[in-house]
Simulated scan of single mutants.
Amino acid sequence: MTKNESSNMTPMKEDYLKIIFELGGTQKKISNKQIALSLNIAAGSVTEMVNKLVKEELVEHTPYAGISLTKPGILLAEDLVRKHRLWECFLVYKLNYKLQDVDGESELLEHVTSEYLLDHLNEFLGYLTHCPHGGVIPDKEGNYEEDSHLVLEAVEDGTKVNIERFIDNHDLLTYLDDLELHIGDKLTVVSHAPFEGPVEIKLENTGEVRNISYKAAHYIFVK
């Protein structure tokens, strides 16, 4: 990815690359529906933007199979994610921001962050490998351990899982804060209500039962 190519990026294109990365688009095909759900936008808008990213050779689209990042798309997404998540760590761990309030600030900061500043920020934070909502932080060479891409909604009834991470979405993080659901929580999936109803879960440490909305259950990654 050259400087000229990256300068053609818009915040919306960057959001697409980051969400495709987060949903597992470095290794598998992601559906339009997954992107639409995650970004809370219409499926038609996703198709339009994906077509633009295909023309710029940042993503590949296989009809009826889905969307994945190309090598240039992966490199750009990794750089964006690294900057964004290091700033999230700084805001949460050093300035005591609430997790649901850091996305907008991190979005602004990532666009004015030089590699020099990023190196010093990374050192100051102690070379963290994950951000506060559980997402990986690629190192300077682009190395990182791949996240789980299994969403809570896709887990079969009766299965025990651990919460690994949340999608970086303000409304979701506020919702989960109200439900007191956290990274690392162990739970059992009890049942899925029909017709896109909630997913009922039981927390292992307290025995409490929670109902997670259908949409939110697509934003929670488990292992």
Rank of each mutant, 00 (worst) to 15 (best):
N4S: 09
M12F: 12
E14F: 00
Y16L: 03
I19V: 10
F21P: 01
L23C: 04
T26F: 03
I30E: 05
N32D: 07
A36N: 13
L37D: 13
S38I: 00
N40D: 13
A42L: 08
G44T: 09
V46E: 08
T47Q: 11
E48L: 15
E56T: 02
L58A: 01
V59M: 06
T62N: 09
P63A: 00
Y64Q: 15
Y64N: 15
L69W: 05
P72Q: 00
I74R: 10
D79L: 02
L86S: 03
L86E: 11
E88M: 12
Y93D: 15
N96D: 15
Y97Q: 09
Y97C: 12
K98H: 11
K98S: 11
D101I: 00
D101A: 03
V102G: 12
H111Y: 01
T113K: 09
S114H: 13
L117G: 15
L117P: 04
L117E: 15
L118S: 04
H120P: 02
E123N: 12
C131Y: 05
G135D: 11
P138E: 02
K140H: 05
E141T: 08
G142P: 04
Y144N: 00
E145C: 04
V151W: 05
E153D: 10
E153H: 09
A154N: 15
D157I: 04
D157H: 07
D157P: 12
T159C: 10
V161N: 11
N162V: 13
N162I: 14
R165P: 10
R165D: 03
F166H: 02
I167R: 06
D168N: 09
D168F: 00
L173T: 14
T174S: 13
L176Y: 01
D177G: 03
H182E: 10
G184R: 13
G184W: 14
G184H: 10
T188C: 07
V189M: 06
S191P: 08
A193D: 10
P194G: 03
P194C: 06
I201R: 11
N205G: 01
N205R: 12
Y214K: 08
A217R: 11
H218D: 04
F221Q: 09
